[in-house]
Design a protein around this nucleic acid. Structure first.
Lengths: 129, 129
DNA sequence: CTTTACCTTCCCATGACTGGAACCCCCATA
DNA sequence: TATGGGGGTTCCAGTCATGGGAAGGTAAAG
């Protein structure tokens, strides 16, 4: 399989797949012409990576998860711990964004949005309440 | 005022303030010794920037907001539009994270987290449901 | 005078790609 | 056989908003 087909089937840009090879996440063999010759197992791993990334796992988390996935003697507790830590980070992020959102929504609501210069948004930014 | 004092009072790292000068957000004059000599107005602008950044506005948004802030003939509609667009982006981000969070929470909940290898988290990543 | 605490510029690194240049390779059609 | 198009390859640079650290100049304190 060439990179284009793998990209289509894994749902990743070819550029990203090359990058993943660069950082050692996949190691496809090469054809005589220098083209990457992906095996089914490479495709499978890339699809795994695509889904892990879609859940927001970092590349380093992905590396760990792939490692656990390939380890028949893994303990599910190790997987769970990685996922829980990631969940915590996501919750923190959401809380932070929610805070911004609330402040911003209040300010936007208070702003007339007309052709006059008076603006509670700028007022807040300038004075810090 | 030297950069250290401004950093303390604006709540920004000195590094960040130098960067803001680099990209033209502030233009403090210099003393004879080459030190930046911040005026009250520079401090004020940096505090404005710190608050705008804390609300998640991009640097380019900040540039626009500072411009509007300094324009006595601004229309508050322009400010409101920038803020509304940012609010929309934040909402999208929150929705995206919320989606990840829900999936992840379900998976974490389903995982025993013991010393055996069976793991619904890895199963999901491998099979895509 | 020496130490300590600033300040300066400069370059490199982050995360996870993305874009583009310059080049090679394979196949089909005129 | 030429040529055109659509693959593939490497390598370098850029993104965003900083942060780290080196090498060196300056100021204030003991």
């Amino acid at each position: 399989m060439n990179i284009g087909e793998v990209a289509d089937r894994a749902g990743l840009p070819a550029k990203t797949i090359r990058y993943y090879e660069d950082i050692g996440l996949v190691k496809p063999p090469r054809d005589a012409n220098g083209y990457r010759a992906f095996r089914e197992s490479d495709l499978h791993k890339l699809a795994f990576l695509a889904r892990a990334r879609a859940l927001g796992f970092s590349i380093e988390d992905c590396r760990v998860l792939v490692g656990l996935y390939q380890d028949d003697h893994r303990a599910s507790a190790d997987v769970k711990r990685v996922a829980e830590e990631h969940l915590t980070r996501i919750d923190e992020k959401i809380a932070q964004l929610q805070g911004m959102r609330d402040t911003l929504a209040t300010l936007v609501h208070a702003c007339h949005g007309d052709d006059r210069p008076d603006c509670p948004i700028l007022k807040d930014l300038a004075e810090g309440r």
